Simulated scan of single mutants.
Amino acid sequence: MTPPLSKADEPADATPRGTGPEAIKAIPVRHPGRYVSAVIAVALLVAIVYAFSQGKIEWGTIPDYFFDDRVMTGVGKTLELTVLSMVIGVVGGIVLAVMRMSKNPVTSTIAWFYIWFFRGTPVLVQLFIWFNLGLVFEYINLGPLYKDYWSSFMTPLLTALLGLGLNEAAYMAEICRSGLLAVDEGQTEAAHALGMSHSKTLRRIVIPQAMRVIVPPTGNEVINMLKTTSLVSAVQFLDLFKVASDIGQSAASTVEMYFLAAAWYLVLTSIFSVGQYYIERYYARGTSRALPPTPLQRLRTVVGRPNGGMA
């Protein structure tokens, strides 16, 4: 049996019995630059607000027209154009992505040329091209199905749909293609080895996994499309921006109506952003151990805390 150590034999750095380790006093690092930048940012914000408050803007005009019937009609037309253009863009993008990935050199070349042209030219230029094709083609003749003057056929709505939808298809094609390429080829080979057809493999194996890559940029494209619809006022389509501009000219409140249109765009994009968050959260299942809490769950957590929700 080993005899107990005496005090002289104990190591010098040994901790006395019955006492714990000394608490570490952590001194936070100071960041004076953060305070300086915050003060500068607040000062700039106050200066901008003060400048606009001193300007000749009738701010009371904005709430007076915010829910005007003409404005609400423009909001509805903007949402309708956004949804229809995105449907054309998504469907066209899927078709172009499949063509782009095809081993057939003809179809892949056609898809590449389409994407190259529509991504390389501005949307406004494309809108004007569609709107003024009546200068090139006097009639549109589809045989026994349809025949009419081009100016009567190419309405502002059709011009806006073609200009926005076909342009969006070029961007969605690259988004869909990147999503499909993100799925491991081994899964496709395994599905084929099990006897699954190519279409069933895409539908059951590839596309559900590709959606995790496709959905986030698609949500951004929807929000971007909502704002891009303001360009169709150039082809006489009565969207939100066109209606606000017309009201501003008739009521001599041009700048006020521009701010009104901006406020409505902010409201709509905020709503779309919330929807995008929930869709991304849905497709994130299986990739994260714990899904991020929803805004409602965060609110319940804060309300449920003691002392009025103070941490």
Results as ranks from 00 to 15, higher is better:
Thr2Trp: 13
Thr2Phe: 14
Asp13Thr: 15
Pro16His: 04
Pro16Gly: 08
Arg17Glu: 15
Gly18Ser: 04
Gly20Val: 15
Ala23Gln: 08
Ala26Val: 13
Pro32Ile: 01
Arg34Pro: 01
Ala47His: 04
Val49Gly: 08
Tyr50Glu: 13
Ala51Glu: 06
Ala51Gln: 13
Ala51Val: 07
Gly55Trp: 02
Lys56Pro: 00
Glu58His: 05
Gly60Phe: 06
Pro63Asp: 03
Tyr65Gln: 02
Asp68Val: 00
Asp68Tyr: 00
Arg70Tyr: 00
Leu81Ser: 06
Thr82Met: 03
Thr82Cys: 02
Val95Gln: 02
Val98Thr: 02
Met99Phe: 09
Arg100Ile: 01
Lys103Asp: 05
Ser108Phe: 03
Ser108Met: 12
Thr109Gln: 06
Ala111Tyr: 06
Phe117Leu: 11
Pro122Lys: 07
Pro122Phe: 15
Val123Asp: 10
Leu127Ala: 10
Leu133Met: 11
Glu138Trp: 02
Tyr139Gly: 08
Leu142Pro: 07
Gly143Met: 03
Trp150Glu: 11
Thr155Pro: 09
Ala160Ile: 06
Glu168Gln: 15
Ala169Phe: 01
Tyr171Val: 09
Tyr171Gly: 06
Glu174His: 09
Ser178Ile: 06
Leu180Met: 05
Ala193Cys: 14
Arg203His: 14
Gln209Asp: 14
Gln209Asn: 06
Val215Leu: 13
Val215Arg: 12
Pro217Tyr: 11
Asn220Tyr: 10
Thr228Pro: 00
Thr229Asn: 10
Ser230Arg: 08
Ala234Asn: 07
Leu238Met: 12
Phe241Val: 12
Ser250Trp: 03
Ser253Gly: 05
Thr254Tyr: 10
Trp264Lys: 05
Leu266Glu: 03
Phe272Trp: 03
Gly275Met: 11
Gln276Thr: 04
Glu280Cys: 01
Tyr283Pro: 01
Gly286Phe: 14
Ser288Lys: 15
Leu291Ser: 08
Arg300Ile: 00
Gly304Ser: 01
Gly304Val: 00
Gly304Tyr: 01
Gly309Glu: 03
Met310Asp: 12
Met310Asn: 08
